[in-house]
Design a protein around this nucleic acid. Sequence first.
DNA 1: CTTAATAAGTGCAACGGTTCCACTTTTGAA
DNA 2: TTCAAAAGTGGAACCGTTGCACTTATTAAG
Lengths: 199, 199
Amino acid sequence: MSHPSMGRRERKKAATRQAIADAALRLFLERGYDEVGIREIADAADVSTTTLFKHFPVKEALVFDEDSGQEARLLAAVRERPKGQSIPAALREHALTTRVATADGDARFAAFTNLVAGTPALRDYAQNMWLRHTAALAQAIAEESGLAADDPLCGALAHFALEAPRAAYAHENPREAIARAFDLLEHGWSHQLSGTRLR
Amino acid sequence: MSHPSMGRRERKKAATRQAIADAALRLFLERGYDEVGIREIADAADVSTTTLFKHFPVKEALVFDEDSGQEARLLAAVRERPKGQSIPAALREHALTTRVATADGDARFAAFTNLVAGTPALRDYAQNMWLRHTAALAQAIAEESGLAADDPLCGALAHFALEAPRAAYAHENPREAIARAFDLLEHGWSHQLSGTRLR
DNA sequence: CTTAATAAGTGCAACGGTTCCACTTTTGAA
DNA sequence: TTCAAAAGTGGAACCGTTGCACTTATTAAG
C-alpha cells in the first residue's frame, strides 16, 4: 500500500500486524473488550501471544492502532497557521476540522467510539495517550508565542486544547461545545458571563 | 479516633485497613512501588490477599488512602466563596491554600510525592482519580454561575481547575504556576500577551 | 550461490495483580 | 441464646505480560 519498495519482510510484518488488529477489533466489537482474552485474539489471528505483544505492547494498543501522524499534524496546525491568526484560534480550527472529518456519518466509527466510551480501561488509556502530546504542543506554543518554554501558560493552553475536543465527544453538538470551550480560552471566564446574570 | 461510638467491629476493620496501608507505604518507600508485591504486603500486614483486596480494590489505592473529603472541600470552596469573588478566583485560592498547607516543610510528604512522581502507574492513577471529580465540580459551577448544567463551559472550567494544580507540581515555584494558569482562565489568552511581543 | 547475520515468529513456563469459591470466626442485634 | 451479617481465610485459577531458548525466513555481503 504505502510503499511498494517495501521488501517482503516488512510487507509480511505489516500483514501480520494488520491481521492481529483486525481480529482484535472484530472480536471486541462482537463481544466487548473485557470478554476477549489475549490468547484468544492471538489464536484468531493465527499467531502466538509473544508475536502479538511484539506488535502491540499492551492490550489497549490493539484498539488504538493508527495514532502516528496526529501529533505532527497538531504541531503543524500551530506552527503554520495563517498570519494574524492567534494560537488558540488555530487550535480551535484544527480541533473542529479533524473532529468533523472523522466523526461524520461513519457507522463503523460510531461503533468504535461506543466501544471506547463503554470501556473504562479504554477511556483512561485514550485520555492518557492523548495527553502525552501535551509537552510537545506546549513547546511549540512557547516558540510561537515568544513565552518562556517553561511558562505554565503554555502547558495550560496545550493541555486545554487537547482536552477540550475529547470532552466535546460527550455532547450532542460537539462543534458548539468545542467552540465554547475555546471561547473561554481566548477571552477568559469573566468575559463569558457578559450575556448571563453575574453572581 | 474519629468516632468513639464505633462498635468493636468497625474499629477492628479500620485497624486492619490501617495496618495494610501502613505496611504498604513503608515497603513502597523502602524499595519502590514496583518492587513490592501484593502478597508481600499482605504478609507484612498479617492478612490474606483476599482481605487486602476487600479494603483496597487495586494496588494503586494502597498509596492513595485518605481521598475522601477532598471533593467535598473543593465543592464547598466554590459554593461558599465570599460575596463578590468570582468562581475561578475561589478555585485559585483553594488550590493555593490546600497546596501550601500540605506541601510545605513536611519531609514525609515530600518522600510520598517523589514516590508518586517516580512511578508511571501511580502518576496515571492519580491523574485519573483526581479528574473523576470533574463532573461534580462542573455541576456546582453551573449552579453557581447560572449557566446551563450541560454547558461545556462548566466542564471546561472544572477540568482546568483540577488539572492546573497537578501540572504545577512539576514547576519550581508551584504557587506562581498556579497563579499564572488561573490568570489564563480568568482573562483569556489574548489578555496574557499584553506584556509580551505578539505574533 | 553460499553464507552469515538479522529479524520475525514460536511454544512454554512463570510472574504478579486480581477474582472466585467454599469455608471459619467474630460481632451485633433480636 | 440464637442467628444472620460481616470480616477474614486459604488456595486455586484467570489474565495480561515477560523471559527464554529455539526455529524459520529474509536480507545483504563475499
